[in-house]
Amino acid sequence: MDALIAAPELAPYQTEPTQMRSGAVGKNGFLKLGFERRGTRTVLADLRRRTPLIAQRALYYDAAMPDLPCVMIISTAGGLLQGDRSAVEIALADDCDAHVTTQSATKVQQMDANFAAQTQDIVLGERAYLEFLPEPTIPFRHARFASRTRIVLPASAALLYGEVVQAGRVHHAGGERFAFDVFSSSIAAQRPDGRRLFAEKLVVEPAVRGVGNVAVMGSYEVFANVLFLAPPEAVARVHGATPAEFDGAARCAAGASRLPHDAGLVYKVVGMDRETVQARVRTFWGRVRQAVRGCPVPPPFLWR
């Protein structure tokens, strides 16, 4: 967390909030989800939490994978506020499967001091399979948000991780598009022996550099960054089934690239609206689950 707080893109935003100080009780959420195998099932064996982050219990609602624990990360804070520091740790022991998501979109609230920062640490055991698909992030006007994700997994494990980021509250007060101050997301993955696989850091500062540039977002308003890290056969199958698309009529563009060091794929999507982008991510998720576990994904929840 200290290195994240010291990142250069956060340097202009180090003033303390006049409300509660940064990282105070209630603003330093922590969640540890430790999964273990029990018989044919994976169970949520280790659950530790500190407000405002909560997870209740694993539910087994996925009809195609009845032994798959599904866990929803809940925040009681109404989004991320200035001065928030949160940490999420997800660990899967050998031969575990798990699906983790969030209860709703993560709203990064308007800020006039400091920033919100989040770390995510994901550690997978041999042959483990994690689907970590949080709901979209919506950075409000003057929001400052930095997230740092570290992944450790062996060559036999598989991870699907996807983040979807929206431009803002596009129907609020005449339209709020890319009005946030900074959105920063860094992801790095390595093997358990320390060999690094790839690293990516996305820094979006709309006031410093316009996102409307034809090579950046053009007129698109939503982007998704999805990682699929898995053994080579599964990666090849998903890659083969995911042609790049660049189609004005479809209101989106998407493409997958092979990551360095045979780590897997990165799948990027930009689109005019959340529904179109999420539909692409869902289709990709379907291919991933089919390639990794030979199972289909459940139909979308009607109320989400």
């Binding site: 690293a199 990516e200 540039n213 090579a215 950046v216 977002m217 960054n225 690239s257 930009v270």
Partner: peptide, 15 residues
């Protein structure tokens, strides 16, 4: 600190 943000350029490269 090495950072980027150009999703359309990235997608075009995969095209």
């Amino acid at each position: 600190d090495m950072a980027t943000f150009a999703p359309i350029a990235d997608i075009l490269a995969s095209v």
